[in-house]
Every structure is written in C-alpha cells, then in structure tokens.
Amino acid sequence: MGVQKNDERDDEFHQFVTAAWPRLLRTAFLLSGDRHTAEDLVQATLERSYVAWWRVSRADDRDAYVRRILLNEHARRFRRRLREQLVTAVPERPAEGGFGRVDDRAALLAALAALPPRQRQAVVLRYWEDLSESQVAAAMGCSVGTVKSQASKGVAKLRAVFLPAGVTRLGGAA
C-alpha cells in the first residue's frame, strides 16, 4: 500500500514538473542571467519541492509555492556571492515569453542583470510572469507597497537604458 502512495505522489510530482519546467526556467533565467545557472536553480528548486511535496501538493496555489522556493533559492545563492555574475551569454533560442520579442535581448538581459536583486525579482515577476502585485508580494515575502516601489525603481532604471535622453515614456518627451 505504501508503494502505491509513493507511485501516485511521484506521478503527481512528475506531471507538475512537466507543466511547470518552462515557466520556472524562464523565471530563473531572467533572475540569474545565465542559462546554466538557471537550470541549476530550477533543479535545486525542484529538489526542495520534491522533499516537501506533501506540503506543496496541499497548497492552494502550487505554482506560487514553488515560485517562492525558487526566489528563496536564488536569494540564498546571491547571498553566498559578493557580486552577482552579469549575463554571460544569451541562449540561441530564447525561452517562450515576452522577452523573446525584444530586438536587442542581450542589452535587455544585461540591463536586467544590473538591477539589484529585489528590483529584478519585482520586475520579472510583475511584468514577465504577469503576476498581480499581491501575488508578487506573496512570492517575495513583502508588502504590496514594497513590490510597487521595487518594480517602479527597476522599470525606471530599464527605461534609462532604453529610452533616449529627455524621453520619460514611450511616445513623448518629458
């Protein structure tokens, strides 16, 4: 009987991984700026998720639970290094998602990698993952106000890189 439960749990986890892998990999890539680091980050996240699958599987939103594990794992790795690595290479074939449509992905990824970690998390989750402010706040373990502030600062820094001097928004000058 215990074997049956383990087999069911493994099947359920396998189905979750199959569905969530592309999304987790895209998020990890945007957070880390490197394909290999992103794969390692997702692998570590899924290892932690499997160990705690009995909790994850009972969560109201499994994706949110695992996304939080991903952010925590990224933060843990970041704290271990004094300086975060900048983007080393852009994958030949970008992951599915909005950033694949940008003409100069390398410049965007480099600018994204230059953001402080909390700003990068807020921007990636809010605008690439299209999560609500409350979902981002839950994932980051902070208030909605902090999400708004960090996302605003991050977007402002990205705009400074991509918009000509004197232009504060697309379609107009300051």
Score class of each variant (00 low, 15 high):
71 L>Q: 01
69 I>N: 07
53 W>R: 01
18 T>F: 04
141 G>E: 05
95 A>D: 03
149 S>E: 12
39 E>S: 10
171 G>Q: 09
118 R>K: 12
49 S>T: 09
25 L>Q: 12
65 Y>V: 12
56 V>D: 12
163 L>F: 03
38 A>N: 08
163 L>N: 04
95 A>C: 00
157 K>V: 04
106 A>G: 11
74 H>D: 09
162 F>A: 08
133 E>Y: 12
99 F>L: 01
170 L>H: 06
108 L>W: 08
164 P>W: 06
151 A>R: 11
125 L>I: 13
164 P>N: 02
70 L>P: 10
147 V>N: 13
32 S>G: 08
163 L>T: 06
63 D>C: 10
165 A>Q: 15
103 D>E: 13
160 A>F: 09
102 V>N: 05
78 F>M: 08
85 Q>L: 06
87 V>S: 04
77 R>L: 14
57 S>G: 15
89 A>S: 13
132 S>N: 07
158 L>K: 03
139 A>M: 07
50 Y>K: 02
98 G>S: 05
6 N>C: 00
12 E>H: 14
54 W>C: 11
41 L>Y: 07
9 R>C: 02
126 R>T: 15
58 R>A: 15
131 L>N: 05
71 L>Y: 04
127 Y>N: 07
93 R>N: 14
84 E>C: 07
59 A>G: 10
160 A>R: 10
36 H>D: 15
9 R>Y: 06
122 A>T: 10
143 S>A: 10
161 V>P: 02
148 K>A: 11
88 T>G: 06
22 P>V: 00
150 Q>E: 15
25 L>G: 03
3 V>C: 00
100 G>F: 00
130 D>K: 03
25 L>N: 09
16 F>T: 09
62 R>K: 14
90 V>K: 05
102 V>D: 09
80 R>Q: 12
156 A>Q: 13
94 P>K: 07
66 V>G: 05
50 Y>C: 09
47 E>N: 02
111 A>W: 09
12 E>M: 01
28 A>L: 03
6 N>P: 00
116 P>V: 06
155 V>K: 07
163 L>Q: 11
114 A>L: 00
24 L>Q: 04
50 Y>R: 10
70 L>I: 02
65 Y>Q: 15
159 R>F: 12
89 A>H: 10
12 E>Q: 03
1 M>D: 00
35 R>E: 14
107 A>F: 03
144 V>F: 14
76 R>K: 12
75 A>K: 09
126 R>E: 14
101 R>Q: 10
121 Q>V: 04
103 D>Q: 14
18 T>L: 04
23 R>K: 14
6 N>S: 09
109 L>C: 14
137 A>E: 03
58 R>F: 10
156 A>D: 15
155 V>D: 01
1 M>I: 00
77 R>G: 14
2 G>L: 04
81 R>S: 13
52 A>M: 11
24 L>N: 01
163 L>M: 13
119 Q>Y: 06
87 V>L: 05
126 R>C: 14
105 R>P: 14
171 G>M: 05
40 D>P: 00
155 V>A: 13
21 W>V: 01
